[in-house]
């Protein structure tokens, strides 16, 4: 039983580390443009780095029919957009101060982070 309990505790530790403590790498915008694919439960890439104090445009392409995926929200920046299926939708991020802002679908099942540096 001891080993089972230890395994359980380790499993919990892995969950905590994997979902909350791990810092995944981000993808920087190149040549002022970046495209995010909305597919199979995730944004690809999900961490996007854009320059501060400059207007940037992120193009979202939703190829997931799930209705959950159709709304994109960046609450901190008061931005929301409807992503049509298989349509490229350009979302303009106004020139902003450095900071980190979550972007997600209405139900927060799709989550990503916008890093303004």
């Amino acid at each position: 039983m001891l080993w089972i309990n230890v395994a359980g505790v380790v499993l919990i530790a892995i969950i905590v580390w994997w979902f909350w403590l791990y810092k995944s790498s981000d993808v920087a915008m190149q040549n002022g443009a970046i495209e995010v694919l909305v597919k199979d439960g995730v944004y690809k890439p999900s961490k996007i780095k854009i320059p501060a104090n400059e207007e940037s445009t992120i193009t979202f392409l939703r190829s997931d029919a799930s209705t959950c995926a159709e709304t994109l929200q960046i609450p901190d920046l008061d931005i929301n957009a409807t992503l049509g299926l298989n349509k490229k939708v350009k979302v303009t991020i106004p020139a902003s101060k450095p900071g980190r802002h979550a972007f997600h679908c209405q139900m927060k099942m799709y989550v990503g982070e916008l890093i303004i540096e």
Binding site: D40, G41, M107
Partner: peptide, 19 residues
Amino acid sequence: KHFYVGAWNSLKNHSANMD
């Protein structure tokens, strides 16, 4: 399939959802 693919992608992404 969509649940498992979504779950796997989320897992790789260090996020978790209904899938």
